[in-house]
């Protein structure tokens, strides 16, 4: 049965230059095991491919039951010159939460 990241954890997006980072924090141990096993760089790249060139780096923080994805070339050149409405990419956390996992 498939499940959305939205049902497993919460997320926040931040920016530095043209790079976005999106954290995903599991609600509990069961959700953490699914996220850790299934929320791969490949799945995240597939979800962001139409707006970011990448590369994407994934960091694991088991003590926080969290993943941190660093998505390069994602913010239209960076906040000050971007033509995007959301130049900081603050809304990109919910693109992560919309990803479907096999579950």
């Amino acid at each position: 049965m498939s499940t959305k990241v939205y049902d497993l954890g919460h997320a926040r997006a931040g920016d530095k230059g043209n790079t976005s980072n999106v954290s995903v924090i599991a609600y509990d141990e069961r959700a953490w095991n699914i996220l850790r096993a299934q929320l791969s760089v490949e799945r995240v790249m597939a979800a962001y491919a139409h707006i970011a060139q990448g590369p994407i780096t994934r960091y694991e923080l088991p003590k926080l039951r969290a993943l941190n994805f660093v998505i390069e070339n994602a913010l239209g050149g960076g906040v000050t010159i971007s033509l995007a409405q959301d130049a900081h990419g603050k809304s990109l956390s919910y693109l992560m939460l919309d990803i479907e996992l096999p579950g």
């Binding site: 997320a11 954290s23 780096t57 960091y59």
Partner: peptide, 15 residues
């Protein structure tokens, strides 16, 4: 703990 976890990773690259 939830608000702290979100903020500790905010604008963080390699933790």
């Amino acid at each position: 703990e939830m608000t702290c976890k979100e903020q500790v990773l905010y604008e963080m690259h390699d933790p």
